[in-house]
Design a protein around this nucleic acid. Structure first.
Lengths: 70, 70
DNA sequence: GTGTGACTTGGAGTCCGTG
DNA sequence: CCACGGACTCCAAGTCACA
């Protein structure tokens, strides 16, 4: 499992735990909906700034989004 | 403290704990020497892939490099 | 509500050097 | 051993239309 897949998995998991759609998260994090979709499909290696914005929108620490599903 | 500063602080701390120079870490992580220098000076928002490679080279989890100095 | 292809552009990341 | 600069390449960032 590479780092993109870890981010994708964590992002999807936390997002669903919060019960928010990609669209709602996109609005909260001020990131385009299709870009979030791309990240959940491991299309890009996001920058730490994007990770940070997503983490804030989800109410968690940026580190939690990169924590390996050990 | 923004995410770049958090990464910079953690990177510098772990690197010095391991007693490795920027140059040695650059070699271990296969990242350019000047780029690591730039990251420690908060010049760029690294991608998660770079964070991952640095973490592996330091023998830690990628999440540890983004953990906020709470 | 989400996946996807196409597109542009600013910045990530490299390589050369200097003090 | 590190900060810092210029010049370069290439991908992440951001947006759109459509399925």
């Amino acid at each position: 499992m590479n780092i993109r897949e870890i981010l994708a998995a964590n992002l999807k998991r936390y997002r669903r735990e919060r019960g928010v759609s990609q669209e709602e998260l996109a609005h909260l994090a001020e990131i385009d909906r299709t870009y979030i979709s791309s990240l959940e499909r491991c299309q890009y290696a996001a920058s730490i700034e994007v990770v940070d914005r997503l983490a804030r929108a989800l109410g968690i620490d940026a580190a939690d989004l990169l924590r390996g599903t050990v």
